[in-house]
Amino acid sequence: MAIVVVTAPAVEPVTLNDLKQHVRATDFTDDDEILTAKGISARQHVERFIGKPLISTTFELVYDAFPAGAITLPKGPLQSVTSVKYLDAATGLEATLSSDDYAVDTASDPGRIKPGVGGWPDTAETVNAVRIRFVAGYGDAPEDVPEPLREAVLQLAAQAYQHRAAALVGESAASIPFGVGDMLGEYREWSF
């Protein structure tokens, strides 16, 4: 199994203006590129920590064959399944499964897809025979992202902006700002 990003988020959950206000740098533009990079890095850190994209992102999940039963999609919250493609066992050609042949569960987090009455079709015996494309994230706009997650991005970006060195001499440092772990804990995807 592998998962790849097909289409990255179109916007960031925290705007440059939000970051500039947070670090009190609204009067100049010298650091706009640095702040933007710190914001992207902070968003990526939050996404890795909670195991979910913040803004709508298109993923492709790849299997060598269909697993038995329902397939849990490893990124959530699931918005939609774009396509389920597979290499047909009889022809070896790529086929697209009709959306009538599977059910999509967007209420669960992470979401899942369940095969119809006939089960999943047989696939050619090769690597990467199944490709499931789906969209996950809290929404398309920054306002769709829960406020604690946006605040965590602001806190992480501000810390990275204000402490650009890898080590601080004469100061104590934390890997993440105080309280950020608590903000993220509620949203973290736990797998057992």
Rank of each mutant, 00 (worst) to 15 (best):
I3R: 13
I3S: 07
V5D: 02
V5S: 02
A8G: 06
P9A: 04
V11R: 00
P13W: 02
D18F: 00
K20I: 07
Q21W: 12
H22W: 11
H22E: 14
T29H: 12
D31I: 14
E33G: 03
A37G: 10
G39F: 01
H45W: 13
R48A: 09
F49M: 13
Y63K: 04
Y63S: 02
D64H: 10
G69K: 14
T72Q: 14
G76P: 08
V81A: 14
V81F: 12
T82D: 11
V84D: 04
Y86V: 01
S98K: 05
D105T: 09
D105K: 11
T106W: 09
A107V: 08
D109E: 05
P110S: 06
G111A: 14
G118P: 01
G118A: 09
W120K: 13
D122V: 03
V130D: 03
I132M: 06
G137A: 13
E143G: 04
E143H: 08
D144V: 00
P146F: 01
R150G: 01
A157S: 12
A160F: 15
Y161F: 15
H163L: 15
H163G: 05
R164A: 15
A167V: 06
A167Q: 12
V169H: 04
S172I: 11
A173V: 14
F178K: 06
D182Q: 14
E186I: 02
W190S: 13
W190C: 02
